[in-house]
């Protein structure tokens, strides 16, 4: 193996250990997604760890949400493979719970809070089986866990943004999945909701489930998450907060948009020095 080209590549840090997607809750290989003629996500590899909370971070337009949606097949991929717990994603749908961005649906839809949560059970209940009292009780329990038990029969259009986000989370809880994928769950919600959501997510992690959030608030990364995945069209870095959430990686991700003064206020991991 003395191929000069490959040696060159090795010199330049281009080689890396092939990801071991075996038991990763979510592993992505060589995924490219484009809107028109510009890649929004280019050749991204990612291996999210089990029993952990991971934040996908990057500047606006860096492809964070696109990466999540394309992995789930909500938008088409130009290339790439996705595995969930070692199996092709199409065969592991029942182990995934997805919380889309709140703005992606029409909240004027004729449904009540409990209706939305029950949607999380549809996959298990099937087409025709009747919803029983046990199902209703399970849905109410999920609402209770996000602090929305008092709003069961409220029309969803009458909720505040934070309450809508909690209902979405309750629906995901009802799915009883092993992998939770959340797209900007903290965007535009009140402080109480943010606390409620993070408590639920931490409880999920404690139960041994994996949580992946598209996240935009750098100030809370170190407090909320164990792992980070930095993306700006390409994968910039990935790893535990302590080693990957560094000033150098943030500079590489955000470019000059992130003033050094701002960086100093962040609760960076141990490897903060560049």
């Amino acid at each position: 193996m003395t191929d000069p080209v490959l040696t060159l590549a090795a010199d330049h840090g281009l080689t890396r250990a092939a990801p071991a997607p075996g038991d990763s809750p979510l592993a992505i290989r060589g995924m490219t997604v484009s809107y028109g003629e510009k890649p929004a996500v280019f050749s991204v590899d990612a291996t999210f760890p089990p029993h952990a909370m991971t934040a996908i971070i990057g500047p606006n337009g860096a492809g964070k949400s696109t990466m999540l949606k394309a992995a789930l097949g909500v938008i088409p991929r130009l290339s790439g493979e996705v595995t969930v717990f070692g199996r092709p994603i199409g065969k592991a749908r029942d182990r995934i719970a997805y919380v889309p961005q709140r703005a992606s649906v029409d909240w004027d839809f004729p449904a009540t809070v409990i209706d939305v949560v029950l949607m999380g059970l549809y996959r298990r209940v099937g087409l025709l089986k009747r919803l029983t009292g046990a199902h209703l009780a399970a849905a109410r329990d999920c609402l209770d866990r996000v602090g929305m038990a008092d709003f069961t029969d409220r029309q969803i259009g009458q909720l505040s943004g934070g309450q809508q986000q909690r209902v979405f989370l309750a629906r995901a809880l009802a799915q009883e999945a092993d992998l939770y994928l959340l797209d900007e769950p903290f965007a535009g919600v009140d402080a109480a909701t943010e606390r409620a959501i993070i408590d639920v997510l931490k409880a999920l992690k404690a139960e041994g489930r994996a949580v992946v959030c598209v996240h935009h608030d750098l100030a809370t990364v170190a407090r909320y998450f164990d792992h980070v995945f930095l993306i700006n069209v390409r994968r910039i870095a990935e790893g535990p907060v302590a080693t990957a959430f560094t000033a150098a990686n943030l500079h590489a991700t955000y470019g000059g948009r992130l003033a050094t003064a701002h960086l100093d206020q962040l609760d960076l991991g141990l490897g903060g020095a560049s």
Binding site: F42, P59, N232, V233, R234, Y254, G255, R257
Partner: peptide
């Protein structure tokens, strides 16, 4: 910022 945007592979 402009540069990171063009680093699209």
């Amino acid at each position: 910022a402009g540069l990171t945007g063009r680093y699209d592979g």
